[in-house]
Nucleic acid binder design. Structure first.
Lengths: 147, 147
DNA sequence: TGGAAATATATGCATACGCATCTAAATGTC
DNA sequence: GACATTTAGATGCGTATGCATATATTTCCA
């Protein structure tokens, strides 16, 4: 049984799509223009940095950052090549591995942040008041948390 | 001078990014599972169909759907190959061309709509009331309309 | 305990993307 | 009117993406 969305829902989706695409384009360009890696690198490094544990398994990263499994695998390859993360075999699970951020990884993430922050301000911050931003985040979290 | 975004702004951006990515993934999978073309095809066909004029120039489409120029060019190639649009030389501008949707193009867009509608309901509609959807669309339009 | 199903990760493949650049035509300037 | 600049659109190129599948390992259950 296919449910038809109301006009308001469709408009919300279209606006959501446009807003994200436009913002993402600006942000990725900002990184590129600054000679920095793309946003996905930041996202993964940040997850590794902010977690309580001292390492994450690829599958944990996958769930947190909403990147598909094959791309997480390849992204970790690249991060490892650049020395931003280290892989370590998982003693209790022979299939798995632990991913740890390195000092170089922390450094590059820190260097990326001002550029990211500026781009977020540009693409999002300038257009919304504090209250509106909070409202927007609240509404969007409804979409993200399911239900 | 780089302005730092507030926590609320950053959270809004992160939620925006996640919500759109998750929804888009669902929508693209719905099209694929139904053996239909991707969303970008729908977007372009819909712009051609809903406009008052009987044709649009590639550059006009580009501005409306937020796809980069090179991808618009290639997308039109594919649409033309499938017989969904026709290209026609521009009499008053030798560089340009007019893109017109064909009957087959209208047909495929109509066939795509129920699938799209269902996926929008799934990804967005189910999580928001009418009023919330309207609020969300309003907030997001602030991002899209600049200012 | 042994075999089936599920899970974690890697990889081949086709496609899509963005950027840089190219060509041709239009516009602006002296 | 001639030349520089800008604009519309196409295309080469490297890279990123998602899907399907492969492989190894673990878990589940008769």
């Amino acid at each position: 049984m296919i449910k038809k969305p109301s006009t308001a829902i469709v408009e919300a989706w279209v606006a959501l799509n446009r807003a994200q695409q436009a913002a993402l384009l600006k942000i990725e360009r900002a990184f590129r223009d600054a000679g920095l890696p793309p946003l996905s690198w930041y996202d993964v490094l940040w997850e590794l940095e902010k977690t309580d544990k001292e390492s994450l398994r690829p599958i944990e990263i996958e769930r947190r950052v909403l990147i598909t499994q094959s791309n997480i695998s390849r992204l970790i390859d690249k991060l490892e090549t650049r020395g931003y993360v280290k892989r370590q075999a998982c003693p209790d699970d022979g299939r798995g591995q632990y991913i740890m951020i390195t000092t170089a990884g922390r450094d590059i993430r820190k260097r990326m942040w001002p550029v990211y922050a500026g781009a977020i301000s540009d693409a999002v911050g300038q257009h919304l008041s504090e209250k509106e931003a909070t409202e927007l985040a609240t509404l969007l979290s409804r979409l993200n948390n399911g239900s």
